[in-house]
Design a protein around this nucleic acid. Structure first.
Lengths: 297, 297
DNA sequence: CCATATCATAGCCAATAGCGATCGACTCGA
DNA sequence: TCGAGTCGATCGCTATTGGCTATGATATGG
Protein backbone atom coordinates (compact mmCIF):
# COMPACT_ATOMS: atom_id res chain seq x y z
CA UNK A 1 0.00 0.00 0.00
CA UNK A 2 2.94 2.32 0.56
CA UNK A 3 4.14 1.91 -2.99
CA UNK A 4 2.17 4.73 -4.50
CA UNK A 5 4.67 6.73 -6.50
CA UNK A 6 4.62 10.33 -7.61
CA UNK A 7 5.00 9.12 -11.17
CA UNK A 8 1.71 7.23 -10.86
CA UNK A 9 -0.06 10.26 -9.50
CA UNK A 10 1.27 12.53 -12.22
CA UNK A 11 0.03 10.09 -14.82
CA UNK A 12 -3.30 9.74 -13.11
CA UNK A 13 -3.78 13.49 -13.01
CA UNK A 14 -2.93 13.75 -16.68
CA UNK A 15 -5.49 11.07 -17.53
CA UNK A 16 -8.12 12.82 -15.46
CA UNK A 17 -7.48 15.98 -17.44
CA UNK A 18 -7.09 14.45 -20.88
CA UNK A 19 -9.82 11.88 -20.59
CA UNK A 20 -7.99 8.98 -22.20
CA UNK A 21 -4.88 6.99 -21.45
CA UNK A 22 -3.51 7.63 -24.91
CA UNK A 23 -3.69 11.41 -24.82
CA UNK A 24 -2.22 11.46 -21.34
CA UNK A 25 0.61 9.30 -22.63
CA UNK A 26 1.23 11.72 -25.45
CA UNK A 27 1.35 14.65 -23.07
CA UNK A 28 3.74 12.95 -20.68
CA UNK A 29 5.97 11.43 -23.33
CA UNK A 30 5.04 7.86 -22.50
CA UNK A 31 3.42 5.26 -24.68
CA UNK A 32 -0.16 4.26 -24.07
CA UNK A 33 0.92 0.86 -22.87
CA UNK A 34 3.20 2.38 -20.28
CA UNK A 35 0.39 4.53 -18.95
CA UNK A 36 -1.84 1.51 -18.78
CA UNK A 37 0.76 -0.32 -16.73
CA UNK A 38 1.32 2.61 -14.42
CA UNK A 39 -2.35 2.84 -13.63
CA UNK A 40 -2.46 -0.91 -13.13
CA UNK A 41 0.36 -0.55 -10.62
CA UNK A 42 -1.40 2.32 -8.89
CA UNK A 43 -4.63 0.37 -8.71
CA UNK A 44 -2.80 -2.54 -7.21
CA UNK A 45 -1.25 -0.21 -4.66
CA UNK A 46 -4.54 1.34 -3.56
CA UNK A 47 -6.39 -1.94 -3.87
CA UNK A 48 -9.06 -0.97 -6.34
CA UNK A 49 -9.84 0.59 -9.70
CA UNK A 50 -9.34 4.33 -10.01
CA UNK A 51 -10.76 4.60 -13.51
CA UNK A 52 -13.65 2.86 -15.17
CA UNK A 53 -12.90 1.88 -18.74
CA UNK A 54 -16.16 1.94 -20.63
CA UNK A 55 -14.56 0.32 -23.66
CA UNK A 56 -14.76 1.68 -27.13
CA UNK A 57 -13.95 5.25 -28.08
CA UNK A 58 -15.26 6.76 -24.89
CA UNK A 59 -13.20 8.55 -22.30
CA UNK A 60 -12.45 6.78 -19.06
CA UNK A 61 -14.29 7.86 -15.96
CA UNK A 62 -12.88 8.25 -12.51
CA UNK A 63 -14.24 5.97 -9.77
CA UNK A 64 -15.18 7.02 -6.24
CA UNK A 65 -11.90 5.55 -5.04
CA UNK A 66 -10.19 7.40 -7.85
CA UNK A 67 -11.67 10.66 -6.62
CA UNK A 68 -10.15 10.06 -3.24
CA UNK A 69 -6.76 9.17 -4.66
CA UNK A 70 -6.75 12.02 -7.14
CA UNK A 71 -7.75 14.64 -4.60
CA UNK A 72 -4.88 13.70 -2.34
CA UNK A 73 -2.65 13.04 -5.31
CA UNK A 74 -2.99 16.55 -6.65
CA UNK A 75 -2.10 17.81 -3.22
CA UNK A 76 1.01 15.67 -3.21
CA UNK A 77 2.01 16.83 -6.65
CA UNK A 78 1.62 20.44 -5.58
CA UNK A 79 3.92 19.79 -2.66
CA UNK A 80 6.40 18.04 -4.90
CA UNK A 81 6.46 21.05 -7.13
CA UNK A 82 6.95 23.27 -4.11
CA UNK A 83 9.96 21.17 -3.20
CA UNK A 84 11.42 21.55 -6.67
CA UNK A 85 10.81 25.28 -6.50
CA UNK A 86 12.44 25.56 -3.12
CA UNK A 87 15.48 23.66 -4.35
CA UNK A 88 15.71 25.89 -7.39
CA UNK A 89 15.43 28.99 -5.30
CA UNK A 90 18.04 27.67 -2.95
CA UNK A 91 20.40 26.95 -5.79
CA UNK A 92 19.74 30.42 -7.14
CA UNK A 93 20.95 31.80 -3.84
CA UNK A 94 17.71 32.63 -2.12
CA UNK A 95 18.48 30.73 1.02
CA UNK A 96 19.30 31.70 4.53
CA UNK A 97 22.68 32.58 5.90
CA UNK A 98 23.80 33.12 9.49
CA UNK A 99 26.77 35.40 9.91
CA UNK A 100 28.56 36.00 13.19
CA UNK A 101 30.60 39.04 14.10
CA UNK A 102 31.39 40.91 17.30
CA UNK A 103 31.18 44.47 18.46
CA UNK A 104 31.38 46.86 15.57
CA UNK A 105 34.02 44.52 14.24
CA UNK A 106 34.06 44.98 10.55
CA UNK A 107 32.69 48.42 10.15
CA UNK A 108 33.40 48.36 6.45
CA UNK A 109 33.56 44.77 5.23
CA UNK A 110 30.41 43.33 6.75
CA UNK A 111 28.11 46.08 5.49
CA UNK A 112 29.58 45.62 2.02
CA UNK A 113 28.93 41.90 2.13
CA UNK A 114 25.37 42.33 3.30
CA UNK A 115 24.70 45.01 0.76
CA UNK A 116 26.02 43.13 -2.24
CA UNK A 117 24.40 39.88 -1.17
CA UNK A 118 21.01 41.53 -0.89
CA UNK A 119 21.65 43.18 -4.20
CA UNK A 120 22.38 39.90 -5.97
CA UNK A 121 19.71 37.86 -4.16
CA UNK A 122 16.84 40.08 -3.12
CA UNK A 123 14.98 37.16 -1.61
CA UNK A 124 17.70 35.90 0.67
CA UNK A 125 17.49 35.78 4.41
CA UNK A 126 20.59 37.18 6.11
CA UNK A 127 20.91 36.93 9.86
CA UNK A 128 23.63 38.62 11.84
CA UNK A 129 24.51 37.78 15.39
CA UNK A 130 27.16 38.96 17.80
CA UNK A 131 29.49 36.46 19.38
CA UNK A 132 31.59 36.58 22.51
CA UNK A 133 34.95 38.07 21.55
CA UNK A 134 36.79 36.11 24.26
CA UNK A 135 35.70 32.66 23.10
CA UNK A 136 34.25 32.81 19.63
CA UNK A 137 32.38 29.67 18.65
CA UNK A 138 31.28 28.94 15.13
CA UNK A 139 28.31 26.93 16.39
CA UNK A 140 25.49 26.90 13.89
CA UNK A 141 26.82 29.92 12.06
CA UNK A 142 27.59 29.73 8.39
CA UNK A 143 30.23 32.43 8.55
CA UNK A 144 32.12 34.15 11.33
CA UNK A 145 34.14 37.34 11.01
CA UNK A 146 36.88 37.55 13.60
CA UNK A 147 40.42 38.74 13.96
CA UNK A 148 42.95 36.44 15.39
CA UNK A 149 42.80 32.71 14.98
CA UNK A 150 40.06 30.67 16.56
CA UNK A 151 40.27 27.06 17.45
CA UNK A 152 37.75 24.43 16.50
CA UNK A 153 36.89 22.55 13.38
CA UNK A 154 36.90 25.46 11.01
CA UNK A 155 38.26 26.59 7.72
CA UNK A 156 39.21 30.18 7.10
CA UNK A 157 40.46 32.75 4.68
CA UNK A 158 42.61 35.74 5.57
CA UNK A 159 40.80 38.90 4.68
CA UNK A 160 43.00 41.78 5.64
CA UNK A 161 46.12 42.80 7.54
CA UNK A 162 44.91 45.93 9.14
CA UNK A 163 47.69 48.15 10.43
CA UNK A 164 47.34 50.53 13.35
CA UNK A 165 48.18 54.13 12.68
CA UNK A 166 49.48 56.78 15.01
CA UNK A 167 47.39 59.93 15.15
CA UNK A 168 49.25 62.80 16.73
CA UNK A 169 49.18 66.57 16.88
CA UNK A 170 50.84 68.21 13.87
CA UNK A 171 54.58 68.39 14.41
CA UNK A 172 54.64 66.09 17.44
CA UNK A 173 56.54 63.54 15.37
CA UNK A 174 58.58 63.99 12.22
CA UNK A 175 56.84 63.05 8.98
CA UNK A 176 56.93 59.43 7.94
CA UNK A 177 56.93 56.17 9.90
CA UNK A 178 57.43 56.31 13.64
CA UNK A 179 59.29 53.76 15.72
CA UNK A 180 56.94 52.15 18.24
CA UNK A 181 59.45 52.39 21.04
CA UNK A 182 59.26 56.17 20.76
CA UNK A 183 55.76 55.87 22.15
CA UNK A 184 57.00 54.68 25.54
CA UNK A 185 55.57 56.87 28.27
CA UNK A 186 53.98 59.16 25.69
CA UNK A 187 50.55 60.55 26.70
CA UNK A 188 47.82 58.80 24.78
CA UNK A 189 44.08 58.70 24.29
CA UNK A 190 42.64 55.26 23.87
CA UNK A 191 39.58 53.01 23.97
CA UNK A 192 38.47 51.42 27.20
CA UNK A 193 40.27 48.14 27.78
CA UNK A 194 38.14 46.04 25.49
CA UNK A 195 39.43 42.80 24.07
CA UNK A 196 40.52 44.83 21.09
CA UNK A 197 42.33 47.49 23.05
CA UNK A 198 44.01 45.08 25.43
CA UNK A 199 45.39 43.19 22.47
CA UNK A 200 46.79 46.43 21.06
CA UNK A 201 48.44 47.46 24.32
CA UNK A 202 50.05 44.05 24.62
CA UNK A 203 51.35 44.39 21.08
CA UNK A 204 52.81 47.82 21.80
CA UNK A 205 54.39 46.59 25.02
CA UNK A 206 55.88 43.72 23.08
CA UNK A 207 57.53 46.27 20.77
CA UNK A 208 58.89 48.18 23.76
CA UNK A 209 56.30 50.87 24.32
CA UNK A 210 54.15 51.42 27.40
CA UNK A 211 52.24 54.60 26.59
CA UNK A 212 50.76 56.67 29.36
CA UNK A 213 46.99 56.45 28.78
CA UNK A 214 45.62 59.83 29.85
CA UNK A 215 42.07 59.35 28.74
CA UNK A 216 39.92 56.45 27.73
CA UNK A 217 36.72 56.86 25.78
CA UNK A 218 34.53 55.04 23.32
CA UNK A 219 33.96 56.45 19.86
CA UNK A 220 36.76 57.28 17.55
CA UNK A 221 35.48 60.78 16.86
CA UNK A 222 35.92 61.63 20.51
CA UNK A 223 39.40 60.18 20.54
CA UNK A 224 40.41 62.17 17.45
CA UNK A 225 38.98 65.32 18.99
CA UNK A 226 41.04 64.77 22.10
CA UNK A 227 44.19 64.35 20.02
CA UNK A 228 43.29 67.50 18.12
CA UNK A 229 42.92 69.27 21.48
CA UNK A 230 46.50 68.29 22.30
CA UNK A 231 45.91 65.94 25.21
CA UNK A 232 48.00 63.23 23.61
CA UNK A 233 48.33 60.91 20.65
CA UNK A 234 46.31 57.85 19.71
CA UNK A 235 46.86 54.54 18.02
CA UNK A 236 43.85 53.59 15.93
CA UNK A 237 43.15 50.88 13.42
CA UNK A 238 43.30 51.86 9.80
CA UNK A 239 39.67 51.02 9.16
CA UNK A 240 38.58 53.35 11.92
CA UNK A 241 40.29 56.25 10.22
CA UNK A 242 39.12 55.27 6.76
CA UNK A 243 37.17 58.13 5.28
CA UNK A 244 37.68 60.23 8.36
CA UNK A 245 38.43 63.95 8.02
CA UNK A 246 41.50 63.44 10.23
CA UNK A 247 43.54 63.02 7.03
CA UNK A 248 42.82 66.54 5.88
CA UNK A 249 43.15 68.25 9.25
CA UNK A 250 46.13 70.58 9.50
CA UNK A 251 46.31 70.15 13.25
CA UNK A 252 46.81 66.40 12.97
CA UNK A 253 49.39 64.17 11.42
CA UNK A 254 49.00 60.48 10.77
CA UNK A 255 51.93 58.10 10.81
CA UNK A 256 52.63 54.46 10.12
CA UNK A 257 54.34 52.59 12.90
CA UNK A 258 57.53 50.52 12.82
CA UNK A 259 57.15 47.64 13.55
CA UNK A 260 53.56 47.97 12.48
CA UNK A 261 51.08 46.42 14.88
CA UNK A 262 48.39 44.90 12.78
CA UNK A 263 45.40 42.77 13.49
CA UNK A 264 44.59 40.24 10.85
CA UNK A 265 40.94 39.76 9.91
CA UNK A 266 39.84 36.28 9.15
CA UNK A 267 36.63 34.88 7.84
CA UNK A 268 35.77 31.47 9.29
CA UNK A 269 33.30 28.76 8.39
CA UNK A 270 32.69 25.27 9.71
CA UNK A 271 35.04 22.71 8.26
CA UNK A 272 33.70 19.76 6.33
CA UNK A 273 30.24 21.16 5.94
CA UNK A 274 28.74 21.72 2.56
CA UNK A 275 28.06 25.40 2.18
CA UNK A 276 25.03 27.05 0.75
CA UNK A 277 25.62 28.97 -2.46
CA UNK A 278 24.91 32.08 -0.43
CA UNK A 279 27.79 31.35 1.94
CA UNK A 280 30.15 30.65 -0.92
CA UNK A 281 29.22 33.89 -2.55
CA UNK A 282 29.51 35.78 0.73
CA UNK A 283 33.08 34.58 1.15
CA UNK A 284 33.95 35.75 -2.35
CA UNK A 285 32.39 39.11 -1.72
CA UNK A 286 34.20 39.51 1.60
CA UNK A 287 37.55 38.74 0.00
CA UNK A 288 36.82 41.15 -2.81
CA UNK A 289 35.80 43.92 -0.46
CA UNK A 290 38.86 43.28 1.70
CA UNK A 291 41.14 43.49 -1.32
CA UNK A 292 39.58 46.76 -2.39
CA UNK A 293 40.27 48.16 1.06
CA UNK A 294 43.79 46.75 1.12
CA UNK A 295 44.50 48.53 -2.16
CA UNK A 296 43.71 51.79 -0.43
CA UNK A 297 46.00 51.17 2.51
CA UNK B 1 15.10 17.24 -11.26
CA UNK B 2 11.59 15.79 -11.23
CA UNK B 3 12.85 12.39 -10.24
CA UNK B 4 12.71 12.87 -6.52
CA UNK B 5 10.83 9.86 -5.19
CA UNK B 6 8.89 9.37 -2.00
CA UNK B 7 11.16 6.44 -1.20
CA UNK B 8 14.15 8.76 -1.19
CA UNK B 9 12.45 11.21 1.11
CA UNK B 10 11.40 8.50 3.52
CA UNK B 11 14.96 7.29 3.67
CA UNK B 12 16.29 10.78 4.08
CA UNK B 13 13.94 11.48 6.96
CA UNK B 14 14.98 8.26 8.65
CA UNK B 15 18.65 9.20 8.33
CA UNK B 16 17.98 12.64 9.74
CA UNK B 17 16.37 11.01 12.75
CA UNK B 18 18.77 8.15 13.24
CA UNK B 19 21.95 10.02 12.49
CA UNK B 20 23.62 7.36 10.38
CA UNK B 21 22.88 5.62 7.12
CA UNK B 22 23.24 2.23 8.74
CA UNK B 23 20.71 2.72 11.52
CA UNK B 24 18.25 4.26 9.08
CA UNK B 25 18.74 1.22 6.87
CA UNK B 26 18.00 -1.07 9.80
CA UNK B 27 14.85 0.79 10.62
CA UNK B 28 13.59 0.75 7.06
CA UNK B 29 14.59 -2.80 6.29
CA UNK B 30 17.20 -1.85 3.72
CA UNK B 31 20.89 -2.50 3.75
CA UNK B 32 23.30 0.32 4.37
CA UNK B 33 24.48 0.23 0.81
CA UNK B 34 20.98 0.59 -0.51
CA UNK B 35 20.46 3.65 1.64
CA UNK B 36 23.71 5.07 0.39
CA UNK B 37 22.57 4.60 -3.18
CA UNK B 38 19.18 6.12 -2.52
CA UNK B 39 20.72 9.23 -1.08
CA UNK B 40 23.14 9.37 -3.99
CA UNK B 41 20.15 9.27 -6.33
CA UNK B 42 18.37 11.97 -4.33
CA UNK B 43 21.45 14.15 -4.35
CA UNK B 44 21.74 13.77 -8.07
CA UNK B 45 18.09 14.72 -8.40
CA UNK B 46 18.37 17.90 -6.34
CA UNK B 47 21.80 18.69 -7.69
CA UNK B 48 23.77 18.81 -4.47
CA UNK B 49 24.68 17.02 -1.29
CA UNK B 50 21.98 16.74 1.34
CA UNK B 51 24.21 15.18 3.99
CA UNK B 52 27.82 15.83 4.89
CA UNK B 53 29.72 12.64 5.62
CA UNK B 54 32.42 13.50 8.08
CA UNK B 55 34.00 10.11 7.59
CA UNK B 56 34.89 7.82 10.41
CA UNK B 57 32.49 6.81 13.15
CA UNK B 58 30.65 10.11 13.29
CA UNK B 59 27.07 10.72 12.38
CA UNK B 60 26.27 12.48 9.14
CA UNK B 61 25.10 16.04 9.22
CA UNK B 62 22.45 17.63 7.10
CA UNK B 63 23.49 20.37 4.70
CA UNK B 64 21.68 23.65 4.11
CA UNK B 65 20.30 22.19 0.89
CA UNK B 66 19.35 19.12 2.87
CA UNK B 67 17.38 21.26 5.28
CA UNK B 68 15.38 22.64 2.42
CA UNK B 69 14.74 19.22 0.92
CA UNK B 70 13.92 17.63 4.25
CA UNK B 71 11.51 20.34 5.30
CA UNK B 72 9.50 19.93 2.13
CA UNK B 73 10.07 16.21 2.15
CA UNK B 74 8.46 15.73 5.54
CA UNK B 75 5.52 17.69 4.27
CA UNK B 76 5.27 15.42 1.28
CA UNK B 77 5.47 12.33 3.41
CA UNK B 78 2.71 13.62 5.64
CA UNK B 79 0.53 14.10 2.59
CA UNK B 80 1.39 10.65 1.34
CA UNK B 81 0.32 9.22 4.65
CA UNK B 82 -2.88 11.22 4.46
CA UNK B 83 -3.52 9.64 1.08
CA UNK B 84 -3.00 6.16 2.47
CA UNK B 85 -5.29 6.97 5.38
CA UNK B 86 -7.97 8.31 3.10
CA UNK B 87 -7.79 5.20 0.94
CA UNK B 88 -8.00 2.98 4.00
CA UNK B 89 -10.97 4.89 5.33
CA UNK B 90 -12.60 4.70 1.94
CA UNK B 91 -12.10 0.98 1.75
CA UNK B 92 -13.46 0.64 5.27
CA UNK B 93 -16.65 2.28 4.02
CA UNK B 94 -16.22 5.80 5.27
CA UNK B 95 -16.81 7.42 1.96
CA UNK B 96 -19.59 9.48 0.54
CA UNK B 97 -22.74 8.20 -1.06
CA UNK B 98 -25.44 10.04 -2.96
CA UNK B 99 -28.86 8.44 -2.85
CA UNK B 100 -31.80 9.63 -4.84
CA UNK B 101 -35.45 9.08 -4.00
CA UNK B 102 -38.65 10.98 -4.55
CA UNK B 103 -41.45 12.22 -2.39
CA UNK B 104 -41.85 10.12 0.69
CA UNK B 105 -41.15 7.20 -1.60
CA UNK B 106 -39.70 4.52 0.56
CA UNK B 107 -41.05 5.35 3.94
CA UNK B 108 -39.65 2.17 5.37
CA UNK B 109 -36.77 0.95 3.25
CA UNK B 110 -34.74 4.12 2.90
CA UNK B 111 -34.69 4.95 6.62
CA UNK B 112 -33.55 1.40 7.30
CA UNK B 113 -30.72 1.71 4.80
CA UNK B 114 -29.57 5.03 6.19
CA UNK B 115 -29.80 3.79 9.72
CA UNK B 116 -27.85 0.60 9.22
CA UNK B 117 -25.27 2.29 7.03
CA UNK B 118 -24.61 4.91 9.69
CA UNK B 119 -24.50 2.17 12.24
CA UNK B 120 -21.85 0.19 10.38
CA UNK B 121 -19.85 3.21 9.20
CA UNK B 122 -20.25 6.07 11.64
CA UNK B 123 -17.94 8.28 9.59
CA UNK B 124 -19.70 7.97 6.29
CA UNK B 125 -21.26 10.84 4.43
CA UNK B 126 -24.76 10.03 3.19
CA UNK B 127 -26.54 12.51 0.99
CA UNK B 128 -30.15 12.18 0.01
CA UNK B 129 -31.78 14.10 -2.77
CA UNK B 130 -35.20 14.11 -4.29
CA UNK B 131 -35.60 13.52 -8.00
CA UNK B 132 -38.36 14.36 -10.42
CA UNK B 133 -40.81 11.45 -10.38
CA UNK B 134 -41.82 12.06 -14.00
CA UNK B 135 -38.36 11.74 -15.50
CA UNK B 136 -35.96 10.23 -13.01
CA UNK B 137 -32.30 10.60 -14.00
CA UNK B 138 -29.52 8.75 -12.26
CA UNK B 139 -27.08 11.57 -13.02
CA UNK B 140 -24.29 11.68 -10.49
CA UNK B 141 -26.21 9.64 -7.97
CA UNK B 142 -24.77 6.42 -6.64
CA UNK B 143 -28.16 4.90 -5.95
CA UNK B 144 -31.71 5.73 -6.92
CA UNK B 145 -34.86 4.32 -5.35
CA UNK B 146 -37.76 4.34 -7.73
CA UNK B 147 -40.75 2.28 -8.66
CA UNK B 148 -41.31 1.44 -12.25
CA UNK B 149 -38.52 1.02 -14.72
CA UNK B 150 -36.34 3.91 -15.70
CA UNK B 151 -34.45 4.19 -18.94
CA UNK B 152 -30.80 5.06 -19.28
CA UNK B 153 -27.55 3.27 -18.67
CA UNK B 154 -28.38 1.72 -15.35
CA UNK B 155 -28.35 -1.56 -13.52
CA UNK B 156 -31.03 -2.41 -11.02
CA UNK B 157 -32.33 -4.86 -8.51
CA UNK B 158 -35.98 -5.50 -7.75
CA UNK B 159 -36.69 -4.74 -4.14
CA UNK B 160 -40.32 -5.35 -3.51
CA UNK B 161 -43.68 -6.02 -5.12
CA UNK B 162 -45.88 -3.83 -3.04
CA UNK B 163 -49.59 -4.64 -3.31
CA UNK B 164 -52.34 -2.13 -2.78
CA UNK B 165 -54.94 -2.95 -0.17
CA UNK B 166 -58.54 -1.96 0.06
CA UNK B 167 -59.50 -0.25 3.30
CA UNK B 168 -63.25 -0.19 3.82
CA UNK B 169 -65.82 0.20 6.57
CA UNK B 170 -66.39 -3.06 8.47
CA UNK B 171 -68.93 -5.16 6.62
CA UNK B 172 -68.89 -3.07 3.44
CA UNK B 173 -67.30 -6.01 1.67
CA UNK B 174 -67.29 -9.69 2.56
CA UNK B 175 -64.14 -10.93 4.25
CA UNK B 176 -61.29 -11.99 2.01
CA UNK B 177 -60.07 -10.74 -1.34
CA UNK B 178 -62.20 -8.31 -3.26
CA UNK B 179 -62.56 -8.19 -7.04
CA UNK B 180 -61.31 -4.86 -8.34
CA UNK B 181 -64.26 -4.46 -10.66
CA UNK B 182 -66.53 -4.31 -7.63
CA UNK B 183 -64.97 -0.94 -6.92
CA UNK B 184 -66.50 0.64 -10.00
CA UNK B 185 -68.43 3.74 -9.06
CA UNK B 186 -67.81 3.06 -5.37
CA UNK B 187 -67.19 6.18 -3.25
CA UNK B 188 -63.57 6.47 -2.33
CA UNK B 189 -61.12 8.64 -0.46
CA UNK B 190 -57.78 9.09 -2.15
CA UNK B 191 -54.59 11.09 -2.46
CA UNK B 192 -54.41 14.11 -4.68
CA UNK B 193 -53.53 13.13 -8.26
CA UNK B 194 -49.83 12.74 -7.73
CA UNK B 195 -47.76 10.62 -10.05
CA UNK B 196 -48.32 7.81 -7.57
CA UNK B 197 -52.06 8.21 -7.40
CA UNK B 198 -52.52 8.70 -11.10
CA UNK B 199 -50.71 5.46 -11.73
CA UNK B 200 -52.99 3.67 -9.27
CA UNK B 201 -56.16 5.04 -10.84
CA UNK B 202 -54.98 3.98 -14.27
CA UNK B 203 -54.28 0.51 -12.90
CA UNK B 204 -57.75 0.26 -11.36
CA UNK B 205 -59.36 1.48 -14.58
CA UNK B 206 -57.43 -1.13 -16.46
CA UNK B 207 -58.97 -3.77 -14.19
CA UNK B 208 -62.44 -2.41 -14.83
CA UNK B 209 -63.00 -0.05 -11.91
CA UNK B 210 -63.57 3.70 -12.02
CA UNK B 211 -64.19 4.57 -8.39
CA UNK B 212 -65.99 7.76 -7.50
CA UNK B 213 -63.43 9.86 -5.63
CA UNK B 214 -65.40 11.76 -3.03
CA UNK B 215 -62.50 13.28 -1.19
CA UNK B 216 -58.82 13.84 -1.87
CA UNK B 217 -56.34 14.56 0.86
CA UNK B 218 -52.69 14.13 1.70
CA UNK B 219 -51.67 12.05 4.68
CA UNK B 220 -52.76 8.50 5.10
CA UNK B 221 -54.03 9.07 8.63
CA UNK B 222 -56.56 11.50 7.29
CA UNK B 223 -57.61 9.09 4.60
CA UNK B 224 -58.05 6.26 7.09
CA UNK B 225 -60.06 8.54 9.36
CA UNK B 226 -62.35 9.39 6.49
CA UNK B 227 -62.91 5.74 5.74
CA UNK B 228 -63.58 5.14 9.40
CA UNK B 229 -66.11 7.94 9.28
CA UNK B 230 -67.92 6.08 6.53
CA UNK B 231 -67.39 8.50 3.65
CA UNK B 232 -66.01 5.79 1.43
CA UNK B 233 -63.30 3.22 0.97
CA UNK B 234 -59.67 3.70 0.08
CA UNK B 235 -56.97 1.87 -1.82
CA UNK B 236 -53.64 2.32 -0.15
CA UNK B 237 -50.21 0.80 -0.63
CA UNK B 238 -49.23 -1.93 1.78
CA UNK B 239 -46.29 0.01 3.18
CA UNK B 240 -48.54 2.91 4.05
CA UNK B 241 -50.65 0.67 6.20
CA UNK B 242 -47.69 -1.14 7.71
CA UNK B 243 -47.78 -0.76 11.46
CA UNK B 244 -50.93 1.30 11.27
CA UNK B 245 -53.70 0.77 13.85
CA UNK B 246 -56.15 0.29 10.99
CA UNK B 247 -55.52 -3.46 11.27
CA UNK B 248 -56.93 -3.64 14.77
CA UNK B 249 -59.82 -1.27 14.26
CA UNK B 250 -63.23 -2.97 14.51
CA UNK B 251 -64.79 -0.32 12.34
CA UNK B 252 -62.47 -1.11 9.44
CA UNK B 253 -61.74 -4.13 7.34
CA UNK B 254 -58.75 -4.55 5.08
CA UNK B 255 -58.89 -6.63 1.92
CA UNK B 256 -56.53 -7.81 -0.73
CA UNK B 257 -57.59 -7.01 -4.25
CA UNK B 258 -58.03 -9.33 -7.23
CA UNK B 259 -56.21 -8.72 -9.53
CA UNK B 260 -53.85 -7.10 -7.08
CA UNK B 261 -52.49 -3.76 -8.26
CA UNK B 262 -48.89 -3.59 -7.16
CA UNK B 263 -46.09 -1.20 -7.71
CA UNK B 264 -42.68 -2.74 -7.93
CA UNK B 265 -39.84 -0.98 -6.14
CA UNK B 266 -36.47 -0.99 -7.84
CA UNK B 267 -33.07 0.16 -6.74
CA UNK B 268 -30.98 1.59 -9.58
CA UNK B 269 -27.33 2.48 -9.98
CA UNK B 270 -25.23 3.64 -12.93
CA UNK B 271 -24.13 0.82 -15.17
CA UNK B 272 -20.47 0.13 -15.76
CA UNK B 273 -19.24 2.32 -12.96
CA UNK B 274 -17.20 0.94 -10.15
CA UNK B 275 -19.12 1.37 -6.96
CA UNK B 276 -17.87 2.51 -3.63
CA UNK B 277 -17.98 -0.13 -0.87
CA UNK B 278 -20.64 2.03 0.71
CA UNK B 279 -22.89 1.73 -2.32
CA UNK B 280 -22.39 -2.02 -2.51
CA UNK B 281 -23.29 -2.36 1.11
CA UNK B 282 -26.27 -0.08 0.74
CA UNK B 283 -27.67 -2.28 -2.00
CA UNK B 284 -27.31 -5.35 0.18
CA UNK B 285 -29.00 -3.63 3.06
CA UNK B 286 -31.85 -2.43 0.88
CA UNK B 287 -32.47 -5.92 -0.45
CA UNK B 288 -32.34 -7.32 3.06
CA UNK B 289 -34.76 -4.74 4.40
CA UNK B 290 -37.08 -5.30 1.46
CA UNK B 291 -37.08 -9.05 2.05
CA UNK B 292 -37.89 -8.58 5.70
CA UNK B 293 -40.86 -6.46 4.72
CA UNK B 294 -41.92 -8.88 2.02
CA UNK B 295 -41.99 -11.66 4.62
CA UNK B 296 -44.54 -9.67 6.53
CA UNK B 297 -46.83 -9.10 3.58
C1' DC C 1 48.68 0.31 15.42
C1' DC C 2 44.71 -2.22 15.56
C1' DA C 3 39.70 -2.58 16.52
C1' DT C 4 35.68 -0.23 15.43
C1' DA C 5 32.26 2.42 13.18
C1' DT C 6 31.05 4.90 9.20
C1' DC C 7 29.86 5.63 4.14
C1' DA C 8 31.20 4.37 -0.83
C1' DT C 9 31.77 1.23 -4.52
C1' DA C 10 31.88 -2.88 -7.47
C1' DG C 11 29.77 -7.02 -8.99
C1' DC C 12 25.86 -9.61 -9.32
C1' DC C 13 20.96 -10.80 -9.90
C1' DA C 14 16.12 -10.31 -10.01
C1' DA C 15 12.51 -7.11 -10.81
C1' DT C 16 10.53 -3.77 -13.65
C1' DA C 17 9.60 0.18 -16.57
C1' DG C 18 9.01 1.31 -21.01
C1' DC C 19 8.41 0.13 -25.91
C1' DG C 20 6.31 -1.93 -30.01
C1' DA C 21 2.97 -4.83 -31.80
C1' DT C 22 -1.21 -7.01 -31.34
C1' DC C 23 -5.64 -8.19 -29.39
C1' DG C 24 -10.28 -7.64 -27.89
C1' DA C 25 -14.11 -4.63 -26.80
C1' DC C 26 -16.96 -1.15 -27.98
C1' DT C 27 -19.30 2.77 -30.83
C1' DC C 28 -20.88 4.82 -34.79
C1' DG C 29 -22.11 5.42 -39.37
C1' DA C 30 -22.79 3.50 -43.92
C1' DT D 1 -25.38 -5.60 -39.94
C1' DC D 2 -20.97 -4.91 -40.85
C1' DG D 3 -16.67 -2.50 -41.36
C1' DA D 4 -13.83 1.54 -39.64
C1' DG D 5 -12.17 3.80 -35.92
C1' DT D 6 -10.96 4.38 -31.11
C1' DC D 7 -10.12 2.71 -26.93
C1' DG D 8 -7.45 0.04 -23.11
C1' DA D 9 -5.14 -4.58 -22.07
C1' DT D 10 -1.65 -7.72 -22.85
C1' DC D 11 2.51 -10.11 -24.50
C1' DG D 12 7.33 -10.39 -25.53
C1' DC D 13 11.49 -8.05 -25.41
C1' DT D 14 15.28 -5.05 -23.72
C1' DA D 15 17.56 -1.81 -20.90
C1' DT D 16 17.54 -0.05 -16.59
C1' DT D 17 17.65 -0.22 -11.90
C1' DG D 18 17.12 -1.28 -7.12
C1' DG D 19 18.73 -4.09 -3.74
C1' DC D 20 22.09 -7.40 -1.75
C1' DT D 21 26.81 -9.14 -0.54
C1' DA D 22 31.40 -8.22 -0.12
C1' DT D 23 34.99 -5.17 0.03
C1' DG D 24 37.28 -0.68 0.27
C1' DA D 25 38.34 3.81 2.17
C1' DT D 26 38.46 6.85 6.07
C1' DA D 27 38.40 8.63 10.58
C1' DT D 28 38.27 7.75 15.78
C1' DG D 29 39.87 5.95 20.10
C1' DG D 30 42.22 3.03 23.03
Amino acid sequence: MADVELRHLRTMAAIAEEGTFGRAAGRLGYTQSSVSQQIAALEKAVGGAVFDRPGGPRPVRITPLGEVVLAHGRDLLTKAEALADAVDRFRAGNGRIDIGTFQGATRLILPAVVHRLLDEHPGCDIRLSEVEPEDPQIGELDLLFHYGRIEGDVEHVELLDEPYLLVAGAGAFPDGPVQVKLLDDVPMVAWPPTYHQKWLERALAHAGARPRIVFRTTGHETIVSMVRAGIGSAVLPWLTLHGSDAWSDDRLSIHRLRPSPASTWYLYWPAGRTQSPLATRAIDIAVEAANELADQM
